[in-house]
Each structure stands twice: as C-alpha cells, then as structure tokens.
Design a protein around this nucleic acid. Structure first.
Lengths: 189, 189
DNA sequence: ATGAGACTAGCACGACTGTGCTATAAAAGG
DNA sequence: CCTTTTATAGCACAGTCGTGCTAGTCTCAT
C-alpha cells in the first residue's frame, strides 16, 4: 500500500526537476525504480496516477495546516496560517512548484480541474475564516467577501512569485508583505 | 507578408484550446493550414516558434499599455493601468491563459525562463512606477519596495484567479478588489 | 502442498514526436 | 528568357508515448 506513496514521490520529483510533461509512465517507473508493468499494477492508467499525485499534494497541505498549534490571538493566528501556505522552505517550495504545474494543466484537463477547484475553494474558505475572525476582533473591515478576494489573490500571487523567483522573494520579504497587509486591514477598519 | 504572425495565432489558439503540450509542430501546422515543411520554412525549430509566440504575447501586452490615453489624476491612472492588465474581456483572458501556460513551462525551460523574467520585471517596474506617483501625491505609503511587493502579488493573484475561474471572478469583483486596494493605500499613508 | 492472489517484469502495437532531407511550384530579379 | 530566391509540400528516421497483454515469482492461508 505504501508503495503508491513511493510512486507519488517519484512523480513529484520528476515534475519539479523536468516538468509535468516529463512525468510519463516510463519515466515515473524508472524514477521509482519499478518496471512499467509493476507500476501499472498500482495505477491502472496515467490519469489515475496524476490524480492521485495531485490529491496527495492537496492532502499534505491540509494536513500541515491542521497540525498547526492553536493560537488564540487572531492576528498572530492569521499570520501563522498565511505564512504556512507560502513557500518559505524547500518542502513548501516543492509543493508550490507541483501545484503550479498541475494548475496549469488543469486549464485543459477536466479531471484535474475538479481537484484544482477543490484546492482553490478550500484556500478561499480559509481566507474567509481568517478575515471573519479578524473582523470580529475589530482587526479587519466588515466587508468579508471583498477582503477575501483581496487576501486570497495576495496569497496566491505571493506564492507564485516566490515559486518562480525564489532568489528575489526571501522569506523575510514574504513575511513583510503579509504583515503589512494585516496592518492595513486593521487600519482600514 | 508576415505569415509568421498567422502561425503564432495558430499557436495561441492551440494553447488555449488544448494546452501547451498539444502545440506540436504537426498540430500547429494543421491549425495554421500549412504543411510541416512549410511551417519549418518560417521557424527552423520548435523552440524558436515557442519563443516567438511568447515574445508576441509580451509585446502585445506592452503595446496595449502604451496605447492607453493619458490620465493626469494619479489615482485614476493607477486604476486604469492595473485594470488593463486583468482579464476583463476575452482578448485579455486569452493572453492570460497563454501566459500561464508559458509561465508554467518556464519553470523547467531555461529559454522561456528568460522571457518570463522579462515580463515579470516589466510588470513589477510598472507597479513600482504607479506607487511612486501615488506616494508623491500623498495617496500611498512611502515604503515603495514593500508596497510594490504587495501590489504586484495582488495583481498577478487576481489575474490567475480570474483566468482559472472566470465564472466566479466577474469584471466587477476584480474592479472592486483593485479599487479597495488603492483606497487602503491612501488610508495607510 | 497447493491453490489463490499480490506483485514484478517486459514485449508489442499503433500513435505521436521533432527534425533532416529532398522535390516541386511560385515569384522575383537580371 | 533564364536563374536565383522564396515558399510549399511531404517522406524517413529514430525516438517516446500510453496501454494491452502474457508470463514468471512471490506470499500466505487453507
């Protein structure tokens, strides 16, 4: 059963190193140290493999968020959750790279689109929850939908930028951007 | 005369409809109504074709920005420029879809990366220019680098979101997000 | 020990890939 | 008129692609 996870690891390595289009059945098998036939015993088709890999990425991000230690202060909690979603270390940088590749393919692949939308909706709901709490504490405006649009876009924009150009966007500059946005929300109230 | 432009149109149609990975030499030739050999008379290799197509997209966006009618009021000018970059109509939606596809491939293709970085830098410089003007007019904080990071991320985030889910992000909601951000900048000053 | 199922391996097929190459048709310049 | 470019077309080659298929090997309960 855990062998499927090994295969997914191979997929993610391949996607990061050579791009999603290089994640062919043959390449994945070689990267995972399996024969083609053996790989197909775990995944009947390529699309099943890709869906599973995409789902794994989503699950990991959600698991990391769920394992955050509780933080009563709304402002600090907001900061912590948002920063957890940005590519501040190699692990999360890898996740974001893979996410970007899948997202791009989802533009033309209906099966992946459903998963992408699921991730999108979850992230947006998270942003909304953060803003609802902040607003209740008087730390953000009351127009939740509008601020959700803005925060969600800022978050994904920062993530994409940091993934594309890790050299320019340091952990510090990302932290500063988030902090500044939260400050702004408090002032606008 | 410029048959090359017709070929690029075919590439862009193909990328939008079926994804970048479907933009093979054969498919592009068929889409453009040419034979393979004929296409190769205009573009010696596939990568030359892709680079040219990517460059065309960049040039078009810059041309559209350059053709904006002058607007003396800093706030209105900022709004106009930023909205021009968002996928508010089909033409710009198409550009953003293609941009996203190229951007994703640029993660693993050094040749495309140079072009992507060029676009990235130009957009960031534009954001910085807008903020410098706003700041001079007392309509934005003086910490230009930090605000550039935020505005640039917001802009790209909105663009990506609207491109992925055009059904959810209406022209109105995008306009509102930009307007709200500019309001916030003025308040934070 | 024997049969069942899980696992591993690899070949074959038809389709698609980018590019090298040659051959023909049209246009242009002398 | 002839020649030189320019343009169009298409075949051949050596790959890679996903998947169907068969067969051998392992583990384990009966």
């Amino acid at each position: 059963m855990e062998r499927r996870q090994d295969v997914v690891e191979a997929v993610l390595r391949l996607v990061r190193r050579d791009g999603l289009e290089q994640a062919s059945v043959r390449n994945v098998a070689r990267e995972a140290g399996l024969s083609m036939g053996s790989l197909r015993h775990y995944f009947a088709s390529q699309s099943e493999l890709m869906m599973f890999a995409f789902r794994t990425v989503i699950d990991r991000i959600e698991a990391r968020l769920a394992s955050l230690e509780p933080e009563p202060d709304p402002r600090r909690r907001a900061e912590r959750v948002l920063l957890e979603l940005l590519p501040l270390d190699d692990e999360r940088r890898a996740e974001n790279e893979v996410w970007l590749a899948f997202t791009s393919r989802a533009m033309v692949d209906p099966a992946l689109r459903a998963l992408r939308d699921e991730g999108y909706d979850a992230l947006r709901a998270g942003c909304r929850a953060i803003l609802t709490e902040l607003s209740a504490a008087g730390l953000a405006p009351t127009d939740i939908p509008a601020e959700t649009e803005r925060l969600h876009a800022l978050l994904d924009g920062l993530a994409v930028h940091a993934t594309m150009r890790a050299d320019i966007h340091t952990a510090e500059s990302l932290r500063a951007a988030i902090g500044r946005h939260l400050d702004g929300l408090a002032i606008e109230t």
